[in-house]
Design a protein around this nucleic acid. Structure first.
Lengths: 200, 200
DNA sequence: TTACTTACGAGTTAATTACGAGTAAATTAT
DNA sequence: ATAATTTACTCGTAATTAACTCGTAAGTAA
């Protein structure tokens, strides 16, 4: 979320941020005006509009006067890195400019990350194309866990099963086949799914 | 809570809080009026309503006069009230002792709340038994939205469709039937689904 | 009754938002 | 190199709305 801001805009959000931290409430437009030595409310409104456009500020409903601002996308308390796009049978596409995805804060942990789901291979388990899955990095899994599985360097989302000393990876979509792991394939677990988030 | 309170509202809850601590009972409206130098009970009632809306105060059933207030829900950063359990074809079961569910903070808004999903009626849309759905209170919906629909006082989760001036509610599970809304049924929309959260 | 809560309508004030216009510096086109 | 245009701000005023206020009437539980 590294939007570069012009110095003036930067100064604006810095002010909002520190005011909020100090006073435990966001500033009013007049307070910003005074603090930043600007002489018109129109100007403040212009800044707010611009910064809203790029997603750095957000208006909350409300309290003072009409609305209130809060600085957003800066201290993102409940965000996890969005590391990539995971698909059925295709390599994990890794995102370079790590974006972030907001998650319930109970999921926030240094070992966790988020992947965006690409294909329909887990559809019948209620993990749809476009969903975000929260992954916990781990090398082991229990029967029935949904895991990020690396098979010959392809990453997929599958259900993990271990029976009769054989590992099987079950897609949850009749169109896809079960993968059986034998000695000839290079296999490892990348993590297990802790949760799913879908935004409409 | 994610909501900053205006200084006046803050002062209100502070008063309630400290009164309760001192007297070991919540204040009456008149006591708040005196304590805060306000001249109208209407004003007190207005504060209580507002603060209830944002989930900071809650009325308990009661002991002085009719009800009593208590201060609730401070400092829960990304939580929304868990209002009930919604099922396919059964009345909405409403939770009294409002629990909370953590959600991505982008969902946190006074108009939003969470329901826990009970039946499998939306399974094919990837909303499973046990999932939490984040609902935005609204009376209107667009075609294809997943809505909380009240039909003759039964609440269900369905996909909303409006075609040829007829409203239809589509479950997403072959086992369930489409509901057609006519004049004989009492119908309203309770909200639309903004997101889904699943925790394993 | 008494002691309290709730509902309603209406008003004031303070803050936000819309709008039209202007400027200086940086970019781009000629 | 110069002119034209765009970008990043700035201003002031008017219109609008959220936040808060009041008083009174109606409702409820003991």
């Amino acid at each position: 979320m590294n939007t570069f801001l012009s110095p003036k805009k930067q100064r604006f959000v810095d002010f909002v941020e520190s005011f909020t931290a100090n006073q435990n409430r966001p500033p009013t437009f007049v307070e910003i005006m005074d603090g930043l030595d600007i002489n018109s409310l129109g100007t403040i409104n212009w800044y707010v509009k611009e910064l809203e456009k790029v997603g750095v500020l957000k208006r909350m409903n409300g309290f003072n006067g009409k609305r209130s601002l809060s600085v957003l996308e800066r201290h993102m308390d409940n965000a996890l890195p969005l590391l990539g796009l995971i698909a059925a049978g295709y390599p994990l596409e890794v995102f370079e400019n790590t974006e972030s995805v907001e998650v319930p804060s109970s999921f926030v942990h240094p070992d966790n990350y988020v992947l965006k789901v690409n294909g329909p291979s887990m559809q019948e388990d209620g993990i749809l194309d476009g969903d975000f899955v929260i992954i916990k990095k781990t090398e082991t899994a229990n029967n029935g866990d949904t895991v990020v599985a690396y098979v010959n360097d392809e990453a997929t989302l599958k259900e993990y099963h271990y029976t009769n000393k054989k590992i099987e990876l079950h897609p949850k979509n009749a169109e896809f086949d079960i993968i059986k792991i034998n000695e000839r394939v290079d296999f490892r677990i990348g993590g297990i799914v802790l949760g799913v988030i879908r935004k409409y």
